[in-house]
């Protein structure tokens, strides 16, 4: 908590808004944390065949993205940030 927070207390309606925005992100993705965890592990497993992945720095989430065909409907999109520690060139495929 910052010092300024003590003086500038958030109103309860702002708290409600912030909490709602957060909870709706996961609601809208219709993807449970367990499934996300499994997707993450599978991605690591596949990529590890080719490169060395920093598993602790891996971040994946499902977000909303506007469709490209110009309609204002948004579609879920998988966002993944996967840091690579080391490319093992010429690694043999098992």
């Amino acid at each position: 908590m910052k010092l300024s927070d003590i003086f500038k207390r958030k109103s309860s309606s702002d708290v409600a808004k912030d909490r709602l925005k957060l909870v709706l992100v996961s609601d809208r993705s219709s993807c449970s944390p367990e499934i996300m965890e499994r997707i993450k592990n599978d991605i690591i497993e596949v990529l590890s065949k080719y490169v060395e992945v920093d598993a602790s720095g891996l971040d994946i989430k499902i977000t909303q993205m506007d469709t490209e065909n110009g309609s204002d409907k948004s579609v879920p999109a998988l966002y993944a940030n996967i840091p690579i520690k080391n490319m093992h060139h010429g690694a043999e495929i098992k």
């Binding site: 109103s11 309860s12 309606s13 702002d14 409600a16 808004k17 709602l20 925005k21 709706l24």
Partner: peptide, 16 residues
């Protein structure tokens, strides 16, 4: 309550 900041306004709701 909206004025007091203790209830979301209609604008807040449509924004979300």
């Amino acid at each position: 309550m909206v004025k007091r900041g203790d209830m979301m306004s209609a604008d807040d709701v449509i924004d979300i």
